[in-house]
């Protein structure tokens, strides 16, 4: 040991940090909304322009899935949502983000509609309040309307099995498992 060894120590710490960094994804941004009540909104649904819904009309536990017809990853994720809604009876609300109503309706007609209803957010104002930055995104809402989890990007079967279903079961979602 001598007084120059601290240089090696600093280097080892640096390498440990870089090694840890290799396993992280720097582009994932956690939402500060997790643990907070869902941001209030009031908007029409995709299928019924006259029907106005608000944050009080999304009884949890449930999923809120942000989607758009122009979003390729949403197309990819869609079968997973359909299976969740149809086979497992998980309530899913859609939020149709920065889309055109006729495109959204056609998309759901073609691919199937897993949503109880989809809130129409044509100008992305609601998405802004919800901190949406990449579609698709999926929020888990509990019975009190508090956001418990947010998934960014398309859902796959692993996400559903390992994260969403256990969480929903914890939250007391009836038949989710």
């Amino acid at each position: 040991m001598n007084r120059y060894n601290w240089i090696v120590v600093v280097f080892v710490l640096l390498v440990a940090l870089l090694a840890a960094g290799l396993r992280l994804d720097p582009t994932r941004v956690p939402s500060p909304l997790v643990g907070k009540p869902m941001p209030p909104f009031s908007a029409a649904t995709v299928h019924a322009p006259q029907r106005v819904v608000g944050d009080g009309q999304l009884p949890g536990p449930a999923l809120v899935n942000v989607w758009a017809s122009w979003c390729a990853a949403c197309h990819h994720e869609h079968p997973v949502l359909l299976a969740l809604a149809n086979d497992l009876r998980v309530p899913i609300y859609g939020m149709n983000y920065k889309d055109r109503r006729e495109d959204a309706v056609a998309w759901l007609g073609r691919l199937g509609d897993p949503y109880i209803f989809s809130v129409f957010d044509g100008d992305g104002r609601i998405g802004l309040d919800w901190g949406v930055y990449g579609v698709p995104e999926t929020f888990v809402i509990d019975a009190d309307g508090v956001i418990r989890y947010k998934h960014i990007g398309p859902l796959d079967d692993d996400d559903v099995e390992q994260v969403l279903l256990p969480l929903l079961a914890d939250l007391g979602a009836g038949r989710a498992r």
Partner: peptide, 28 residues
């Protein structure tokens, strides 16, 4: 791609770590 990252990191450990250790040994 993380595989490349691992390789460069290993290289860093050998090249930089080795030379710094050599320095700490010889500098006195």
């Amino acid at each position: 791609d993380p595989e490349r990252g691992v390789f460069i990191l290993l290289f860093l450990v050998v090249a930089v770590g080795g030379s710094l250790a050599l320095y700490a040994w010889r500098a006195p």
